[in-house]
Design a protein around this nucleic acid. Structure first.
Lengths: 410, 410
DNA sequence: CGCCTTATTTAATGACGTGATTTAACCTCC
DNA sequence: GGAGGTTAAATCACGTCATTAAATAAGGCG
């Protein structure tokens, strides 16, 4: 009864030690390719001898390749090492409000195949989605010419709360999903290792790994689309809370007794800065347009001096800034990243005003340590981020690939 | 350039492994005393042989004592082990708004000496505080008859933001402290190892270790006094953010454009539920009373049916509930603990109403997984929690005590 | 071609955790 | 009260690991 006060600790055999060191080395190499044994020794803190040993092991397993060399003033050249990007593959799935998208990547995260299934807005039934995903999996495998045994895992980003556990359960407000055992349903159709997570969180991962979040240890990635979500990263890790539903920034209250939100509460942030809510507040919106064009039109109208559009945006910037200030005060991140299609559209035009509103509503010290930026990966990042889930497992040494994929040891 | 995405990893020598295992064992024993080697083997996952080895080491260092035995149906009795509570001592300091309090504890956290220095409300100068603390340190050492060499460390809880780093800097809004290098100032007067942290955070630690937080991995401890603060615990660790100013819940915005807060912003939670703010909103408050009696009087007035008092409280419960719902949505804690003198007073009478308001403003799933409770340790817990800072270091094996305190090895 | 410089590997060493084996400590039953 | 049983703890032999120091590889330069 003490686990409450200390972080999880792995079992301490001398063998686990090796697994950990190997993992540290892999992470380092993965994010700093190509590298040399020497450099790895520096970055990991391991002795050159240990680096040599581990690297030999990795080369034998065909996970790492030697690739050229670089002169070292006068002496023996350093050998360049890089991860064999064809050692295995990962798949990322983006289950969005309007489509299901499946992408296959190699270990370097270059896209090798894609499948895209537009979704009828009225067709969010569980079986439809499951079918699309399974269909997409076979499609990208075939398309890329990759066998299932070479797949390290499949990451799936879905809207709504994802309860991790023995059985992965998805609660999708917008989809009308209630406690859907998505993992079990999918496992009926595929044997690939699955990693299911909330879409905002997977997008957050993508920005942290490859986008505007690189280098930050503490960040919040805000996903503003039709609705509003966020992914909180502390110490480089996505904050999940006790049942993985942390980060529901959109339903934070900014006005007690304010506008009604689709979640049933009043005064939620989402009821002011979600695309749906913004358009709702704007009388000038022509009906029948899709949200994306409608919001773009609103922005144009404001740029052309339309008073009402302008005031809706002004208000939006204020509320969004307030929402961000809450994040700053509570999390003290070094960086806040605005993403999602609506977030990017709004940010482009309103960022200074949003920043100003955030400044006015947060504590000076914390605000001064936070930068507020736009996401760099676009709204397509959900699948990419989802695909990093199996990559993480791989780098941690928690995935073993069938032997056929290993070169016979020297 | 990859640390952004993986948690800190310790250097991996076979020696660190031992230190870690020893630490795991110590934590387990600390929170589950007395215990036996056998039981420790179970809880730590270490083999009985390793437990034996480590325990022998700890006994040799006089950190652990054997204390009696317990029959085991028929066979050799299990030997009970407990931590030698006199192996070393820790000191906790509570720098509050009205006093400085210094307490000395043994390893079992029983209080051995106390020193208390009331503070003139106008006298929050840095040197005054530093002097009081130093005075208190000598006082408790003398009082308990303990030499400085037996002190594992001193934990200090202060109001305001504490920036951890090479040089500990304190920003105390309420105190009018701006970037005070408290660590350096104290080090001029004492050689004891110092741990400085925000008072809300140290109180949170106390509740997590010994109070209403026991057993929880994810919790938020709310400190409501004259102002409002919070301590967020994720995975058993206090969340600090990038510059340790995380958890400033009090300055979260609950009403855009709302009441002015002493921080300069508008609509902060603190401007509604801090004791000062509550009394401010209550016209019936007789002047010249201290806050504590005034709030108690307000509560009594409401209990006796005074309409205005009642409505102020009703409103307070609403705002507090909304504040909690933000925590629930963002952090998804398993437990929320209401503490601080005002929090306890309010909670006693208003808890059901607070809970209800929180429920109405948070997402169903997250709310249903959270319990909202009152703190168990009272407002005195700041010093206790501060004292756990050096305890933690000790249990992690990061503290070495001078040899004089070790029994000569057998 | 021999010497110099730097990178990597090899060899020797010491620490560690574990399973198997002993030893310790207490019980029951005859 | 001693033999046999039972459970706990300590010891031993072994395999694994990271590290340091020494050796070797791989170029450059004169």
């Amino acid at each position: 009864m003490w686990e409450h006060v200390t972080p999880e600790r792995r079992r301490g055999t001398v063998r686990d030690l090796r697994r950990d060191n190997r993992s540290v080395l892999l992470w380092s190499l993965y994010f700093d390719q190509p590298s040399t044994r020497q450099e790895l020794s520096r970055t990991t803190g391991l002795s050159p001898a240990s680096v040599s040993n581990v690297v030999r092991e990795l080369i034998d397993e065909d996970i790492v390749h030697e690739a050229g060399a670089v002169d070292s003033d006068g002496g023996r050249p350093r050998v360049l090492l890089r991860i064999n990007q064809d050692h295995g593959y990962v798949i990322g799935v983006d289950v969005g409000e309007t489509r299901v998208r499946v992408e296959l990547f190699d270990l370097a995260m270059t896209e090798r195949a894609t499948a895209d299934y537009p979704l009828d807005p009225r067709e969010h039934g569980v079986t439809t989605i499951v079918d699309r995903i399974l269909e997409g999996l076979s499609a990208v495998l075939a398309d890329a010419g990759v066998g299932p045994s070479a797949i390290l895992g499949v990451g799936i980003g879905v809207p709504g709360v994802v309860e991790q556990g023995d059985e992965v359960i998805v609660h999708g407000q917008t989809y009308g999903w209630d406690a859907v055992p998505l993992g079990r349903l999918l496992r009926a159709g595929t044997d690939l290792p699955l990693h299911i997570d909330n879409g905002a969180k997977t997008m957050g991962r993508a920005e942290m790994w490859f986008g505007a979040g690189r280098g930050a240890q503490h960040a919040v990635v805000c996903l503003i689309g039709s609705g509003v979500g966020a992914s909180v990263i502390a110490h480089g890790r996505t904050h999940r809370g006790s049942t993985s539903s942390a980060g529901e920034w959109g339903h934070t209250t900014v006005v007690v007794g304010g506008r009604e939100c689709r979640c049933g509460a009043q005064g939620c942030l989402e009821a002011y800065v979600g695309a749906e809510a913004i358009l709702d507040r704007y009388a000038g919106a022509p009906p029948g347009q899709d949200e994306e064009s409608a919001l773009a039109a609103l922005l144009d109208a404001a740029a052309n001096g339309a008073g009402e559009a302008e005031s809706v945006l002004e208000e939006t910037a204020l509320y969004l800034g307030v929402g961000l200030s809450d994040l700053i005060n509570l999390f003290n991140p070094e960086r806040i990243i605005l993403g999602g299609w609506a977030g990017l559209l709004l940010g482009e035009r309103l960022l200074p005003r949003i920043r100003d509103a955030a400044r006015r509503h947060s504590l000076r010290h914390a605000f001064s340590e936070t930068s507020i930026e736009l996401g760099r990966l676009g709204p397509e990042a959900v699948a990419l981020g989802a695909a990093t889930l199996p990559i993480e497992r791989f780098l941690n040494g928690e995935t073993v690939l069938p032997v056929e994929h290993r070169r016979s040891a020297g």
